Amino acid sequence: MLSNYTARYIKIGSGYLGQLVEWPEVVTEGKTLEEYGEMLKDALKEMFLAYHQQNKEIPSGGALLEQVPVEV
């Protein structure tokens, strides 16, 4: 079964740092966006395994995001 999760990331001095919107415990970083993406997939797989072993409910994916412009 294929599930989609929403990643949110920011540029930091050493590369990129991010987490999943629907599953905030899944956090990682990488020097490049490509490395960050690979690290995120690996972190997600590990979290799936940990939740499964602990019989915890897996958060569902599919969050929708919207940017809201505000004049400040």
Rank of each mutant, 00 (worst) to 15 (best):
Y16V: 08
V21D: 09
D42T: 02
L20E: 03
A7N: 13
E66R: 03
E22D: 07
N55V: 02
K11H: 12
I10C: 08
E66V: 05
Y51S: 00
G30M: 04
V26F: 08
E57L: 13
Y5E: 14
I10P: 00
V26N: 11
V72C: 01
L65T: 11
I58G: 04
L65D: 02
K45W: 00
E38K: 09
I58F: 12
T28A: 12
Y16L: 11
Q67H: 03
F48T: 02
P69G: 08
V21P: 06
E22C: 01
S14P: 02
E66Y: 03
E57I: 12
A7M: 13
T32N: 05
G37C: 12
H52I: 04
P59F: 07
L44W: 00
Y51F: 03
L40F: 11
E34C: 01
N4D: 14
L44A: 14
L64V: 13
G18L: 09
M1L: 11
V70K: 12
G62N: 04
S14V: 10
H52G: 11
L44F: 04
Y36S: 02
E22G: 03
M1W: 09
Q53F: 08
V72A: 02
M47E: 15
L49R: 12
L20C: 01
V27L: 12
K45S: 00
S3W: 00
G61M: 04
K56H: 10
I12M: 07
M1R: 12
Q53T: 08
L40C: 05
G13E: 11
G37W: 06
V70H: 14
I58S: 06
V70L: 15
Q19D: 14
A7P: 11
L65I: 09
N55Q: 14
I12Y: 07
E46I: 01
L64F: 05
G30F: 09
V21Q: 09
N4Y: 14
Y5D: 13
Y5F: 14
P69N: 12
L65Y: 00
E25M: 05
G18R: 04
K31E: 01
A43I: 03
Q19R: 10
N4L: 14
W23T: 07
E57A: 15
V26T: 04
H52A: 15
V70E: 14
S60R: 10
D42V: 00
Y51I: 00
E71I: 05
A7I: 15
L65P: 01
L17A: 06
S60W: 01
T32I: 03
F48L: 14
L20F: 10
K56C: 03
E34M: 04
A63G: 09
E38P: 01
P69K: 10
K41S: 07
V26A: 08
G15E: 05
I10L: 10
A50L: 14
V70Y: 15
Y51K: 07
L64D: 11
P24S: 02
K41E: 13
G18W: 09
K45A: 00
E71A: 08
T6C: 06
Q54C: 04
L40S: 09
S14N: 12
E71L: 12
K45C: 00
Y5V: 04
S60K: 13
M39C: 08
T32A: 10
L33N: 05
Y36H: 02
V27H: 04
A50D: 12
Y16Q: 07
E71Q: 03
R8N: 01
V26H: 05
G15Q: 05
G62A: 10
A50Q: 11
G37L: 11
K56P: 00
L20D: 04
P69T: 06
